[in-house]
Amino acid sequence: MSMARKALIAVCQLSSTDDKDHNLRECRELVRQGAARGARMVFLPEAFDHISPSTEVMLRLAESLEGELVGSYRQLARESGVWLSLGGFHEQGPDWDRERRIYNTHLLLNDSGEIAGLYRKTHLFDVDIQGQVSLKESSSTIPGPRIEPPVTTPIGKIGLAICYDLRFPEISLALASAGAEILTFPSAFTLTTGMAHWEPLLRSRAIESQCYVVAAAQTGRHNDRRWSFGHTMVVDPWGCVLAQCGQGPGLCCAEIDLDYLRQVRRQMPLAQHRRHDLYGTVCIRHPPGSAPSHPPLPDAPL
């Protein structure tokens, strides 16, 4: 597989519902549009498969990796000749017949329709902002067990994450340290959190990791209980917004330039300046004669 120094990507924005066939048709059309524009890779948001009005419906619509849904997208990747980032689908968990819980799973498919990477969401969105938003993802979702290594693709090395992971810089820095050049945050941000934090978080993750950040998003009304913020976005390693969508379904395109990424990292070598010998432990000093209010912290592993 050859890796281009510059490559076009297409990033999609959806308004998924609980009609899986309709969602698939919408995604298929956007993927074909991206391929027609010359994109090497097309990114779909979290819950591209469906957003359901209740936990019961969501569980009923969940599938396995060997199910019809993934099979349809594997065929779409082959037919379109592009790589696909399937940004978070409702995967039946282990012991499905006994315990009805899912993983929120991000898949990468290559242009032959093979699974090239897989990540199960590790940070689950359990948030209750009084009068604005209340969701408890952990009630039906199993947290993923690990951060996965970056995946080598024709556009660069991709680090996989999903939505709420965006709020934890540790995962971005870990992926960048492992060689990632592009970070993905396929999302379904709520209106409240999106208006407040979406763009600042994406730009911050790009700046501190010196990676491209690609964030496909859900938008608009999904049902009577769920609305999403939209504003699909691509940010470069300097923190500049290269492309974004507004409201409504659609896509935007941007160029990934790995030579530019190298230039940013060379001119401001954050990776070499990081003090890994210090992080994880804070030395708390007390005035002479005073006693600490808590026992000293144990030494943290480097």
Rank of each mutant, 00 (worst) to 15 (best):
R167T: 15
V42F: 01
I158F: 03
A254P: 06
F168M: 08
H22K: 12
F43A: 01
P154K: 03
I155S: 04
G81L: 11
T193W: 06
P169V: 00
D257M: 09
P154M: 05
G250Q: 04
E66T: 02
M58S: 06
M233P: 12
S80I: 14
L86Y: 09
V11S: 01
L302C: 15
E255A: 13
P288K: 07
V127Q: 00
L76A: 05
E26N: 07
S64I: 08
Q33L: 10
F185M: 03
T193R: 00
C211S: 07
E148S: 13
V70P: 06
Q75N: 11
R146T: 11
F229N: 01
H294A: 09
A180S: 11
C163E: 09
C283W: 13
L44K: 00
G289F: 15
D21I: 15
E63Y: 08
R265A: 15
W227V: 01
L160T: 07
A116V: 04
I115N: 06
G194L: 02
S209Q: 01
W238Y: 12
D21Q: 15
P288N: 05
C27W: 01
R266I: 10
G87V: 12
P237T: 05
R205Q: 08
L201Y: 12
P94L: 01
A271L: 10
V235P: 01
L173Q: 08
P186Q: 03
P249G: 02
W227I: 00
R266S: 14
D236T: 07
R221P: 00
M195Q: 01
L278C: 07
S228Y: 02
L76E: 05
R285N: 13
G131F: 08
R265S: 14
M41F: 04
H106K: 15
L202S: 02
T122G: 10
F189G: 11
L135G: 01
R37A: 15
A176F: 08
A178L: 09
A62S: 09
D299R: 13
I129N: 02
G159M: 07
A35M: 11
M58H: 05
Y260F: 15
D111F: 03
N23M: 07
A271V: 05
A271N: 11
G179K: 14
S187A: 14
S16P: 13
L242Q: 07
G71M: 13
T122R: 15
V127G: 00
R74E: 06
S293Q: 12
Y119A: 03
G220I: 05
W227M: 03
D165S: 06
Y164Q: 05
I256G: 01
R120F: 07
C211D: 07
Q247G: 05
I102A: 04
G239R: 05
R37Q: 15
G250A: 07
R5K: 12
C163F: 10
G179L: 14
A180M: 12
A291S: 14
P186T: 02
G88C: 05
E255N: 09
L202V: 00
N104L: 11
I284F: 08
G67R: 02
V127C: 02
N23P: 05
A243H: 15
E66G: 12
L109P: 10
L261V: 02
M41Y: 04
A271C: 08
D236E: 04
V264L: 11
T153H: 03
D21A: 12
S2P: 14
S15G: 01
L59Y: 11
E170V: 08
F168C: 04
P292W: 06
K157V: 04
